[in-house]
């Protein structure tokens, strides 16, 4: 069964260099705003994060050796480090 954004908090922090699971995303499909940590996490060849309301894709993360290949959907609101 799927997990949620919390499960890849470490990976997301490596990508964004700040903690983002408490930040929010407004979905491009349904317009609902949810914390990244509340998004549903699916693990296929790579990670797929989906809107907890409408299931549309919020992010795909492919872990290529030495690199992350990330695609984001919707409006992610991320605070820069203080």
């Amino acid at each position: 069964m799927h997990k949620d954004g919390n499960a890849i908090a470490g990976v997301l922090e490596e990508i964004f260099t700040v903690e983002v699971t408490a930040e929010t995303r407004t979905c491009q499909s349904c317009g609902q705003e949810n914390a990244i940590g509340a998004h549903r996490l699916f693990t296929g060849a790579g990670y797929v994060l989906r809107c907890p309301n409408c299931s549309d894709v919020a992010a795909t993360i492919a872990t290529v050796p030495g690199d992350y290949r990330v695609t984001l959907f919707g409006a992610w609101s991320v605070q820069p480090p203080q």
Partner: peptide, 21 residues
């Protein structure tokens, strides 16, 4: 889907074609 996000377009395991590069 995965091919658009960095995985290999063909994907032969014996040539280890996991990623686009």
């Amino acid at each position: 889907f995965w091919e658009s996000y960095g995985y290999h377009n063909y994907g032969d395991p014996f040539k280890e074609q996991r990623y686009w590069s």
